[in-house]
């Protein structure tokens, strides 16, 4: 999963749909820890298109 940090609005919606619980919303941006399975859930719910599954 590719993160486009400048699009992120820090709403945290991606966090709640992650089945692996690997998304963390830090003060300086989103972090995806290494176990991402590329399920794409976060990209579906992101209001601002900050997550790109093709990455």
């Amino acid at each position: 999963m590719d993160i486009i940090q400048e699009n992120c609005g820090y709403c945290g919606t991606c966090v709640c749909v992650c089945p692996e619980n690997v998304i963390e919303l830090e003060e300086n941006g989103l972090i995806i820890k290494d176990r991402c399975t590329e399920c794409g859930n976060c990209a579906i719910v992101c209001p601002l298109g900050a997550l790109n599954p093709e990455g």
Binding site: C11, G12, T13, V15, C16, V17, C18, P19, N21, L25, N41, I44, V45, C46, P47, L48
Partner: peptide, 26 residues
């Protein structure tokens, strides 16, 4: 702690949510 709740997960009473059940809003 809101929709991005970690607390319920830490406490072991909630799994992740299906994106079908989350309205993405702007």
């Amino acid at each position: 702690d809101g929709v991005e709740s970690n607390m319920a997960r830490y406490a072991g009473i909630e799994a992740y949510r299906d994106p079908k059940n989350i309205a993405s809003c702007a």
